[in-house]
């Protein structure tokens, strides 16, 4: 494997966003790119990352390899990179280590780190293709704010999408709270658009603790997409450049 990222910052932000949810992960490398799928310990949330080969320049992977990496170790090394550094990941065919090289575009500084790999026996889940009843796209910062505001009142949030809009509501010991967003197009600032695509109304309840955690990815993309269907996990997606993405799935709270 040899994969060169223009900005080390991208990998740094991705790892920073997921490191509190999942600890040891396989980075599955093949000629289409670098993928990661991992569940949290409670099996309630799942992270699915895809960094497509096109996100790297150049990208070369001659043989499929799984790099088992402890994310807190990876974060320690990524913190040694300047945000603007060029990052090159390298690994042999049957690697014991992954090699990270950081190059400054402005100076002649070159730093090099090896991280020891681990054998991780990871359960891979098949995620079915789903036609979601509601797909909401909104500013990532808005979603983060709603989750942070509501977690002050309650552990759970009900997300209800109707043709009127999307309502985030919660109730707790001190009282209730709700935030409603309607479809909104801002011609001058399209990054503030809220778009609700609905085939049928849907209402589901989720744990806010996980949603707040997912929102650590807000710095990766201006927009977040929420996909909901009755009785299936919520998909929270942050789209990255070159069709790469960081997705989170969250199992709902069900029944009385």
């Amino acid at each position: 494997l040899e994969a060169r990222l223009e900005q080390a910052n991208l990998l740094k932000k991705v790892v920073d966003a997921i490191k509190d949810l999942v600890q040891d992960c396989n980075f599955d490398c093949n000629d289409s790119g670098i993928a990661l799928q991992a569940m949290d310990n409670s099996h309630v949330a799942l992270v699915s990352m895809m960094l497509k080969a096109e996100s790297f320049s150049p990208f070369r992977c001659d043989r499929n390899i799984a790099l088992g990496i402890n994310l807190s170790s990876l974060m320690k090394v990524l913190r040694c990179a300047q945000n603007e550094d060029i990052l090159t990941l390298k690994a042999d065919d049957a690697p014991d280590v992954v090699n990270l090289v950081f190059e400054s575009s402005e100076s002649d500084r070159l730093s090099e780190y090896d991280i020891k790999l681990m054998d991780i026996d990871q359960e891979h889940l098949g995620i079915p293709e789903t036609e979601y009843s509601a797909t909401i796209s909104m500013p990532a910062a808005e979603f983060q704010r709603i989750c942070r505001d509501l977690i002050a009142l309650s552990e759970s949030v009900a997300i209800e999408a109707t043709k009127e809009g999307v309502k985030f509501s919660c109730s707790g010991d001190i009282g209730n709270g709700a935030v409603t967003l309607r479809s909104h197009t801002n011609v001058e600032k399209p990054e503030l658009n809220v778009d609700i695509a609905l085939s049928e109304p849907v209402a589901l309840t989720f744990s806010l603790k996980y949603l707040v955690n997912f929102c650590k990815a807000s710095g990766l993309s201006g927009t977040v997409k929420l996909c909901l269907s009755s009785e299936v996990p919520l998909l929270v997606e942050y789209t990255l450049a070159s069709n790469s993405y960081l997705r989170f799935y969250l199992a709902p709270k069900i029944g009385d």
Binding site: S42, H43, V44, L125, P128, A251, K253, G255, D256
Partner: peptide, 14 residues
């Protein structure tokens, strides 16, 4: 109150 489901209920092991 509603109970937290786990992902295994929805996503199969291939």
């Amino acid at each position: 109150p509603p109970k937290q489901a786990t992902l295994g209920k929805f996503f199969g092991t291939p």
